[in-house]
Simulated assay, not measured.
Amino acid sequence: MRILLSPSETKSVGGSGVPLDLAGLSLPSLTATRRTVADALVAVCTGDPGEAQRLLGLSDALSGEVTLDAELWTSPTAPALSRYTGVLYDALDQASFTKATRARAEARLWIGSALFGLVAAADPIPHYRLSAGTQLPGLGTLRATWRTALTDAVAEWAEELVLDLRSGGYHQLGPVPGAVTVDVVTEYPDGTRKVVSHFSKHHKGLLARTLATSRAELSDLGSLLRVARRAGHAIERTSDTVLTLVTEP
């Protein structure tokens, strides 16, 4: 089973790993596209920091992110699972993993990225700032840049169960045919339901933790639902490719 997560705008800084080596990342067929995007990002951040700040949608308080992007090729790396922070990753709580649960999580978790397309949980990456909606000089939209390469790269997953928890913008960078998605809704006492927006990240993080660390063999929707429900998640099978996670108000 593979579980795809959204990245986060916020990331840890620093790390103890050697500088970025694109050839060492998972899904090596994406190396050329990763280099194209990385070179375009570094070029604008080194050549015109003010324009880079505008393109990246950064406030003056966050202008230091431009400098960090400019140092992309020389800054230290950390495992992707440790690099990303924020609501989803707080719920995932990777810092509490045991050696065994971390091994299972690293085998199952993947993280979407506007810079790298997709990275495995253990892939070493530097701090960076780039969102799916950014358009870099010399490139079209990142959706156009990534879509074919990324969908082709994951074609080998066709026979596997893939749970795609990425948000809309990152899902559009490279849809995975046949992947299962999850809608998060709140159910009120009168039975009405409302789609959850911001806190969707929290609930998806909790679900991802349950599934990523489970000792069960998760090869189909039936086994996924059993494990999730045993852990207390109120989850429904809406269709063969859509699940609904029901939360309380």
Score class of each variant (00 low, 15 high):
K99T: 13
L109C: 12
H171V: 13
L118Q: 04
G178P: 09
T148N: 08
I125L: 11
L81C: 04
L109K: 13
P76R: 09
L72Q: 03
T74Y: 05
S75L: 06
L88N: 11
P79Q: 07
L173R: 04
R147G: 08
S113Y: 10
H171P: 02
D93F: 02
T98F: 04
T151G: 11
W146Y: 08
L136K: 11
G168T: 14
K99V: 13
A149K: 08
A70H: 01
P137D: 11
Y170F: 14
R129N: 02
W110C: 12
E106G: 11
P137Y: 14
Y89I: 05
L68I: 06
L81F: 06
L115K: 01
S131W: 02
L165F: 04
G133K: 01
G178F: 03
A70S: 14
D93P: 01
T101D: 13
A91H: 07
R129L: 04
G112Y: 06
P76K: 09
T74K: 07
L118K: 02
V119E: 05
T74Q: 12
L139W: 07
P137G: 12
A80K: 10
G133H: 00
P137H: 14
P126V: 07
R143S: 11
P124W: 07
L161C: 07
V162P: 10
A144I: 02
A114D: 09
L173N: 02
L136T: 06
E160P: 00
P76L: 10
D69F: 00
P126G: 04
L150V: 02
S113I: 10
A100Q: 14
Y84E: 14
Q94F: 02
S75D: 14
L150A: 01
A78I: 07
A121F: 07
T77C: 15
L109S: 10
V119P: 02
L150R: 03
K99L: 12
G86I: 01
V87K: 05
T141M: 11
L139H: 06
L88Y: 11
L130I: 13
A155D: 14
A70D: 13
Y170A: 08
A120E: 05
A78Q: 11
R104P: 09
A155H: 07
G112Q: 05
E159Y: 01
G174R: 06
A80Y: 08
E156N: 05
A153H: 05
L109G: 08
V87Q: 06
T145G: 00
I125E: 04
V176I: 12
